[in-house]
């Protein structure tokens, strides 16, 4: 029997250090995806909220596409397709240039697109929950459209959207596992390599599940704190 302590140690014989590096990659990928996923999701929600028909349509196409495609397929499309497409595009200007979408960036773009499509739905339903009187009230006290959005609507919007966004974050964290398929050294890839090499598949994949679970629990705790903090200023209804 192999000694599990050696296998999980941080030394040269053990996989602990490799897996720890994998955890960092997973967390970094999820954290890097979050801000731009949120920003695009918000913009798409604005477009879908707008009175302008063409904007609504453009926004709806975006969500239809990125909610409809399997995440794994989106990842392949970005990693291989976009790479070849951009390469050809750049070659038009400079025959020698090489563009590299590394697997981290590909993962970020693909997961961000999926995340933003779902986030736009969350934002949109949060928009619907804010009565029109809030906008009118903002205008009535002389705020501009932008100011109303920033000072009146956004704070309420975030509070309403927070639970939904928390869910999306957990989904994002889990979806990062897919990048292991395109070779990014995340938790699942590192444990997968260890499982292949040591033939202790149950140990390492079980460990992978436990690490994801720990990350999910940590996230829930953090989100609980953020929700309590953001709820402080709000009116209890």
């Amino acid at each position: 029997m192999t000694d599990y302590r050696t296998l999980l140690s941080f030394g040269p014989e053990g996989w602990g250090d490799d897996i720890a590096a994998g955890v960092l990659v997973t967390v970094a990928l999820a954290l890097a995806t979050l801000p731009f996923g949120l920003a695009i999701g918000f913009l798409v929600a604005l477009a879908k909220q707008s009175g302008e028909k063409t904007l609504r349509l453009a926004g709806n196409i975006y969500t239809t596409v990125f909610r409809g495609l399997p995440e794994l397929l989106t990842l392949f499309l970005v990693f291989y397709g976009a790479q070849i497409g951009i390469q050809q595009f750049v070659r038009l200007f400079d025959a020698k240039a090489t563009v590299e979408i590394n697997s981290f960036v590909a993962g970020m773009v693909a997961l961000g697109a999926v995340f933003s499509a779902y986030a736009s739905e969350v934002f949109q339903s949060a928009f619907r929950a804010i009565p029109n009187g809030q906008y009118e009230g903002g205008y009535a006290i002389g705020l501009s459209k932008l100011q109303t959005m920033r000072l009146v609507i956004l704070p309420q919007l975030i509070r309403i959207a927070l639970p939904g966004l928390g869910n999306l974050w957990l989904i994002l964290l889990k979806d990062t596992a897919l990048v292991s398929v395109i070779g990014l050294a995340d938790i699942l890839r590192q444990t997968g390599i260890a499982a292949r090499v040591t033939r202790e598949a149950f140990l390492f994949f079980g460990l992978a599940c436990l690490i994801y679970l720990a990350l999910a629990i940590l996230s829930s705790i953090a989100f609980g704190a953020i929700e309590r903090w953001s709820g402080k200023g709000g009116v209890q209804r």
Partner: peptide, 23 residues
């Protein structure tokens, strides 16, 4: 519920397929 919702489906599938394969 927490376990299955908190871990990636891909990891669960690997755990079943390769993990149980070693038993």
């Amino acid at each position: 519920v927490y376990f299955f919702r908190g871990t990636p489906l891909l990891a669960q599938t690997f755990l079943v397929y390769y993990g149980l394969g070693s038993f």
